[in-house]
């Protein structure tokens, strides 16, 4: 009984430290919650259908069209609202997929070394020498359609290389430390050491990476859309930017078309960064990490 209670208060302490007393994380989570709500309630918030083409093209913002009308006569505000759905889901799901693969491969390659590590790193190296974006373009051309699922898989499955490499190089250093030897001496198994001993010790790197890959996934989605490889029936922020570029929004002074999607992507990515970074700082502090010079 006593033990349980203590554990509870421990996890509460962690929660308190990482979230409740962490302004940066709170701001970040606030932003994410905001966009998630927009995504969920898109049909309620958006005044029109995102694909509806019934308005006067190039109309500047007005009370009827808060962000104006694009070159095809579609309401831009509605598109931004609906675009939230695609961008958020691609970012988070692809980011998770990436992190999962990246952490596992990185740890395994770094700690295990030997044959397994060698083979894993060979695979990573091979894929690293092929430019990822070009690889994605080929895959996008190869797959019969670029629906949201394919988009997530392509982005998620190809973005983990850097993460794996970075985690591996940290693990490599960690694996040679005393505490790992100690764990080995205690008879702990490989997986146990990897996840129980090494992983907690390189959490800053892992967090920084995870946060990066979510943002990275959103940016990749935007870039693929910009290059015209996304699914055009999926309205995402990147796709909006792509169409605004192709239709010379600059000429029409259509800042209301070019700016909002970009700011949305940046703000959402920013929120993930904030959370990740604040966790990292707290963690470093815990370890007495900050050396003041």
């Amino acid at each position: 009984m006593k033990k349980e209670k203590k554990q509870k208060s421990d996890s509460y302490l962690v929660l308190e430290k990482y979230l409740l007393k962490n302004t940066k994380a709170k701001i970040g989570i606030g932003i994410i919650v905001f966009f998630t709500l927009v995504a969920v309630f898109a049909p309620v918030i958006a005044p029109y259908e995102a694909t509806q083409m019934d308005f006067v093209p190039w109309e500047a913002p007005s009370s009827e069209h808060w962000l104006g009308v694009n070159s095809y006569g579609q309401d831009i505000f509605s598109q931004v609202v609906y675009g939230t759905r695609v961008t958020i889901s691609v970012g988070i799901l692809a980011g998770l997929l990436t992190s999962f693969i990246g952490i596992f491969v990185g740890l395994l390659a770094g700690y295990k070394g030997g044959k397994t590590g060698e083979i894993l790193m060979r695979i990573v190296d091979v894929f690293l020498v092929i430019p990822t974006l070009a690889f994605m373009i080929i895959l996008a051309a190869f797959l019969p359609s670029m629906g949201i699922v394919n988009l997530i898989i392509i982005i998620g499955a190809l973005n983990w290389l850097w993460m794996a490499r970075s985690i591996r190089s940290q693990t490599l250093s960690e694996a040679r430390r005393e505490y790992v030897d100690a764990a080995k001496a205690q008879g702990m198994g490989t997986i146990e050491i990897m996840f129980k001993e090494i992983l907690p010790n390189i959490i800053p790197v892992v967090t920084a990476n995870m946060v990066m890959v979510v943002t990275q996934a959103m940016l990749t989605e935007a870039t693929l859309s910009f290059l015209g490889l996304g699914d055009p029936s999926l309205i995402s922020w990147g796709q909006m930017l792509s169409v605004s570029f192709d239709n010379n929004a600059i000429l029409y002074n259509a800042w209301y078309w070019m700016l909002p999607p970009g700011f949305c992507i940046a703000t959402l990515g920013f929120s993930f960064m904030l959370i990740g970074n604040s966790f990292l700082d707290i963690y470093a502090n815990d370890r007495g990490g900050a050396v003041s010079l």
Partner: peptide, 13 residues
């Protein structure tokens, strides 16, 4: 056609 915004817009219409 993918990668051709005008084509896609027309396909949509």
């Amino acid at each position: 056609a993918s990668g051709a915004p005008a084509q896609q817009m027309e396909a949509g219409m």
